[in-house]
């Protein structure tokens, strides 16, 4: 276990109990009425979901940056998150949310569709440039279709539902979402963890990686599946939560040897920590309506991104 893994595991272990007690109503397990019920049915599933979603997005971001050898890469670039969002929007558009399973199911179908499209375009050759372009194309297509769905929403209620849902949140989630996302995200993180050795080899460029015996098309398949599962399942249960995949590897990298393989597990832990803390903060903020988690993280993420660009510009100058 490296230093980064240990650091973020300890921080996460400290943050979890705090997050359970924090909220508009602070819970004292001894005196708050119905404390066990609130903790067991509301706060615990919500905290676990934050950990699952953040863990998946963090690991996906680390793998994505390792694969593209670019510190500005974000799992959203792959088009899987927009694909999943489109699926969910379709469910909202048709009012299929009467059954609680249908929205996440549609989102997973959307993520699967984006993955299939990516694989069909770029899977055979395994070239990184083609893959990135395919991802951007899938992302903009899904984004355009989502915008179309919003503009042609059957009624104002559906439109506001869609727009609200697109800004991810963990409000009013239950154990159902936990059971849905946990196995998918865990499997996804496992697959991404398996790409570590290949991502390390890619540090020296694609030809060297191939000369070291790395099967680049197998790597691409693992990545598409791993990112599809983690990001797709996250969007399915929480909506779009941006910037986690971009920020987290940057927080983790200085604590590691900077090898891509060393980054995946600690990034999962740090992503879980970030989303858990952010979700606790939006609960505490004294606003009339709760700030949406997706908006909060974007408010945090965009300035960070700018700071990163400024620092890189200084490095280049």
């Amino acid at each position: 276990m490296n230093r980064a893994t240990l650091t973020f595991a300890v921080l996460l272990a400290l943050a979890l109990p705090l997050s359970l007690l924090a909220g508009r109503v602070w819970i004292d397990p001894a005196s708050t009425p119905n404390a066990a019920l609130i903790l067991g049915e509301l706060r615990l599933p919500r905290a676990l979901l934050a950990i699952i979603v953040g863990g998946g997005l963090g690991a996906a971001g680390a793998a994505m940056q390792g694969y593209l050898r670019n510190p500005l890469a974000d799992p959203g670039l792959f088009g899987i998150a927009p694909g999943a969002a489109l699926g969910a929007v379709v469910a909202l558009w048709f009012g299929y949310t009467a059954s609680a399973w249908l929205l996440p199911l549609f989102a997973l179908i959307g993520a699967g569709g984006a993955m299939a499209l990516l694989a069909a375009i770029a899977g055979r050759t395994g070239g990184i440039a083609l893959f990135t372009l395919a991802g951007l194309m899938v992302a903009s297509l899904a984004g355009a279709l989502t915008a179309l769905a919003i503009s042609m929403a059957p009624n104002a209620f559906a439109m506001s539902e869609i727009v609200l849902w697109l800004n991810g949140a963990l409000t009013d989630r239950s154990w159902r979402e936990v059971w849905l996302a946990a196995p998918l995200v865990s499997l996804g993180i496992l697959l991404l963890w398996r790409t570590g050795r290949s991502l390390d080899a890619l540090t020296l460029g694609e030809p060297v990686a191939r000369s070291l015996g790395i099967d680049t098309s197998r790597l691409l398949w693992l990545l598409i599946l791993g990112i599809g599962l983690t990001v797709g399942a996250s969007v399915a249960v929480a909506g779009i939560i941006g910037f986690v995949g971009l920020i987290v590897p940057h927080l983790v990298r200085p604590l590691t040897d900077r090898r891509p393989s060393q980054l995946i597990v600690p990034s999962a832990l740090a992503g879980a920590l970030l989303v858990l803390v952010a979700d606790s903060v939006v609960r505490i903020l004294p606003l009339v309506t709760e700030l949406r988690l997706g908006i909060a993280l974007s408010l945090l993420g965009a300035p960070f991104f700018l700071w990163l660009l400024l620092r890189m510009r200084k490095g280049l100058a």
Binding site: R69, L202, T203, L204, G205, V208, D257, R258, R259, P260
Partner: peptide, 8 residues
């Protein structure tokens, strides 16, 4: 030659 990350 290409070394993508600032590794040791």
């Amino acid at each position: 030659p290409e070394i993508a990350w600032d590794v040791s």
